[in-house]
Amino acid sequence: MPLQTSLIISLVLFSILLIGVLVARPGITGTRGGKIVAFLALFALPLLSGGMGVSTELEHAKTTEFCLSCHIMEPYGKSLHVDDPQHLAAAHFQNHRVPADEACYTCHTDYAMFGGIKAKIGGLRHIYVYYLGKPPAPENIKLYEPYNNRECLHCHSGARSFEEGAVHTADPDLIPALKANKTSCISSGCHDVVHNVGSLKDAKFWKGGN
């Protein structure tokens, strides 16, 4: 169990104990000390442990394990293990260009103000569609809007491989167009093999990195 979870569980147990005493003997709130205990047990500690719990759950919601826990996402998880450097997602995952334990979130969050919140609201919609709606087949899942270069440039901007790459510098207008999101990194024909879950049947898979 992670240390943070252990701490929260300890706090929860302590809070339950303290509240239990108050519920069993509510008369102690008549004293000054009892009022302080009541404030701690019925207000401060629940707020603290609830806040810490929400924070832990939100952090956990960023993990690759969390995203792939929905059956519909399995092919996307599988696509991270394709043994082909042309597969963008697989190349990023296997070469640790993104943290392996937060692979989905790193590329699919929105690196603008409140982007994390927007991504989580989108995630709530996914849960609704998955359990109560009609989820599409994995190969038919589409992004809400075209992938923004901003998410790529969050890491690649300023990197030598990006700024001085032969293909990127061949046309002096290309890098400004990429930075302005006028030319897409993904759909302009350069890095267009991303997950391609429809063609995984014929793919060869990398066995390492488990």
Binding site: I8, V23, A41, S69, G123, H126
Partner: peptide, 30 residues
């Protein structure tokens, strides 16, 4: 009122503990 508040909070804390200990997916989060 304090007792009812305490019982409700204990239930909330139990839900939190169960979700943190045994839930690892979106349903536990929700």
């Amino acid at each position: 009122k304090l007792q009812l508040s305490g019982i409700t909070l204990i239930l909330g804390l139990v839900v939190e503990a169960l979700c943190l200990l045994f839930g690892h997916g979106p349903i536990a989060f929700l």
